[in-house]
């Protein structure tokens, strides 16, 4: 039972965190709050990839001369780490695009609330 819990609780927390992000996108009216929800959702996906790359009793992905490389179980899997490394940096660049769109919307309409924006557009 304890083994099942320690093997699966990371997935449960990842799902809860993803649902917190989706909650922020669906229910919050302010556009900056929606952007914060988007960032939380993005990071939760990164956390899922890092948690499935894990191995018990394994060392980090830098080669140590004292630890033999023949036993693959001695080292973590480096491929998901690499993919997520680029995903984080691309994520902050696209968040920058979202910020510039927010500033452009505020300069034109004077508000960031969703309901007021819909009224002002018509």
């Amino acid at each position: 039972m304890l083994e099942f819990f320690t093997g699966h609780y990371a997935y449960w927390f990842t799902v809860i965190l993803l649902c917190v992000g989706v909650y922020g996108i669906m229910f919050k009216k302010n556009l900056i709050k929606k952007t914060i929800g988007l960032a939380i959702l993005q990071i939760s996906v990164v956390m899922y990839w890092v948690s499935i790359a894990n191995k018990w009793d394994a060392t980090v992905t830098t080669l140590d001369p004292n630890i033999p490389v023949d036993q693959v179980a001695n080292y973590l899997n480096p491929l998901p780490h690499t993919l997520m490394l680029t995903a984080i940096v691309v994520g902050v660049a696209t968040l920058g695009v979202a910020f510039t769109l927010l500033i452009a919307i505020y300069n034109r309409y004077g508000t960031l609330d969703e309901q007021e924006l819909l009224e002002k557009i018509q």
Binding site: V89, V92, A93, G96, F99, T100, I103
Partner: peptide, 13 residues
């Protein structure tokens, strides 16, 4: 590239 783009986003904002 990463340095220039992050500074560029700040400068335009």
């Amino acid at each position: 590239t990463v340095m220039a783009i992050l500074i560029m986003i700040y400068d335009n904002m």
